[in-house]
């Protein structure tokens, strides 16, 4: 006798967010990325469609990173000194779905680079690449409020995904993104209530939910991964059950977190029982990424080309019905 299978019926789907605009849409991209749209839990295709596969954005910094381990910088090579070359490499050689430009050099404690230089990097990368762009500020609210609106304007019509807004600072960036036709990242500190609250606040400024992406703030493998994992599961269950204010795609800054982990960076001489350093770092980033796919991640922001390749191949496999 055939089993009576337990199938979940969901009443809501995750919103679809489009990143990038084609030439006839007012942008200059040759392709766009659509993410979200899930009608069920990750990869359980019998219960709901997953119209858009999870995507990988590769992280590019406007200045040469000073705290990246050598196993990471040497994988990218000399292009790491030039954000435009680096971005092109991500598109052409590493087949990234998107570029994620982080304006680290804007930070007052770093180089505090002038706004003209920052807007120029944004424009140059848009000119040299054809895939959609995610743009992240330096993380210092005051400085970001000054430079991100200028960058937003410089990329008007390109439908960037731009971030990050937080509960205490969302108005300036949301207003800019609204005016210039971009979508926005809403960051919450591993807290489902704040995530929802911020989405409501942003929506109240008449930003549609098809233009908001949730950053739940993930931790790396071994460094609090399980907190974000469960927050994402809870938020996604709520979304599928009808809560539209949690029904946005997730972006996970996997590379940023994974490469801070001691296990990703420490040398083999320091920890001989931990195995090869290079492979360990790649594994740390890749496994952090694939675990979040199981919790519903839509956009993975990653760093190491080999980890990107592994995760992309795994997504290829996961998406087969």
């Amino acid at each position: 006798m055939a089993l009576d299978l337990v199938k979940e019926k969901w009443s809501n789907a995750v919103a679809v967010v489009t990143i990038g605009a084609l030439k006839d849409e007012g942008g200059t991209r040759s392709s766009v990325v659509r993410c979200g749209g899930e009608e069920g839990l990750p990869f359980l295709f019998a219960e709901g469609k997953t119209p858009h596969r999870p995507v990988i954005a590769m992280e590019v910094l406007d200045v040469e990173p000073d705290d990246w381990p050598q196993s990471l910088t040497s994988a990218i090579g000399p292009a790491i000194k030039n954000p435009v070359e680096w971005a092109v490499k991500c598109e052409k050689d590493y087949k990234a779905d998107l570029i994620c430009l982080r304006l680290a050099g804007a930070h007052p404690d770093a180089q505090n680079r002038p706004a003209e230089q920052l807007t120029k990097v944004v424009k140059d990368i848009l000119q040299a690449t054809t895939i959609p762009l995610i743009l992240i500020g330096c993380g210092e609210d005051k400085r970001d409020n000054e430079i991100l609106p200028l960058c937003s304007q410089a990329a008007k019509g390109e439908r960037l995904l731009i971030g990050e807004t937080v509960q205490a600072n969302y108005k300036t960036l949301t207003a800019s993104a609204l005016a210039d036709g971009h979508s926005i990242i809403a960051q919450s500190p591993i807290d489902i209530n704040i995530a929802k609250q911020l989405n409501i606040l942003i929506s109240d400024m008449s930003m549609s939910i098809e233009r908001i992406v949730i950053n739940p703030t993930v931790g790396a493998l071994g460094y609090g991964l399980e907190y974000a994992y469960s927050i994402m599961e809870r938020a996604r269950l709520a979304a599928l059950s009808g809560d539209k204010m949690l029904g946005m795609p997730f972006i996970c800054f996997v590379g940023y977190e994974a490469w801070r982990a001691k296990e990703a960076k420490a040398s083999e001489t320091e920890f001989p029982t931990w195995g090869k350093q290079l492979e360990r770092g790649i594994a740390w980033e890749a496994l952090t990424a694939t675990t979040f796919l199981q919790a519903g991640a839509d956009i993975l922001v990653m760093r190491h080309p080999k980890a990107v390749e592994l995760v992309r191949k795994h997504i290829d496999e996961l998406m087969k019905e």
Binding site: G222, L225, E226, W274, G275, L287
Partner: peptide
């Protein structure tokens, strides 16, 4: 039997099986 693979997997298990 790569040490890095085993360390990663055991770490993931520790995370997922932590009492929330």
């Amino acid at each position: 039997l790569e040490e890095w693979a085993v360390l990663s997997l055991l770490t993931l298990r520790q995370n997922i099986y932590t009492d929330p």
